[in-house]
Amino acid sequence: MGGSAVAEAHTDYERMAHMASDPRATGRPDGSSGPETPTRRQAVIRLLGAISGLIGAVLGVPLALFVFGPTVRGKSRWLASVMPPDAPLGGGGAPDGVQWLGRATPPTLRARDPWVPVGEVKALPAGVPTLVTVRMPVEDGWVRDVEPVAVYARRDGADQAAVLDIHCTHLGCPVSWNRAAGRFFCPCHGGVYDSAGRVVAGPPPRRLDRYAVKVENGTLYMGALLPPDS
């Protein structure tokens, strides 16, 4: 218990002045050391850290996945088990088998309708790519719209055709068809393609991407982008 000086102290001021001068006098009835003890402070700081870490982890994982957006949903079994399936906005939905992952230059927004008419096959000049703008239903987040999508269409023979994506496979710049040279040129780093979309010069890692095509009753339809190198 405190010494005689405490007994003599009559006012709070005097008692506290004594406490400040005597390091052993803590004012605690059992004389134990005070709240400044390093190990106690350490423990409090550690507890604070643990609580912050827990809050951060519980909040951080959902937020990280939140940043990734809708595309991450289909890629994890765990996510699929904890989340309801991707409900399309008011019916419809992406066509089956549309392969987007692993592509460096996805050229268009997510197509909703697998087959879009490009035009009469006979109207396309043979062997010469023609810039055609098709109206394609697309889904971009919450926006669902019919948007123009430009492609290069080329007829080979009577009822065969190819539909090429306009983006250079190097870094996605739009390639332009040069009629005199009979080649596609990229305006960025000198990529050159022939009329079939094969690389003839420059840095592109692969030929121009192609869309799935089919011809029905003389009309050319284009579908999803084909996976590279197919």
């Binding site: 957006g69 595309t71 991450v72 987007w100 971009d140 987040g141 870094l171």
Partner: peptide, 23 residues
């Protein structure tokens, strides 16, 4: 997106999807 291994993953992270649009 051209980065080895993590490219496709980074592309989607940056674009919020596969294409450049409202997201």
């Amino acid at each position: 997106g051209a980065a080895p291994l993590v490219g496709a993953w980074m592309l989607e992270l940056v674009r919020g999807g596969t294409a450049i649009g409202t997201l």
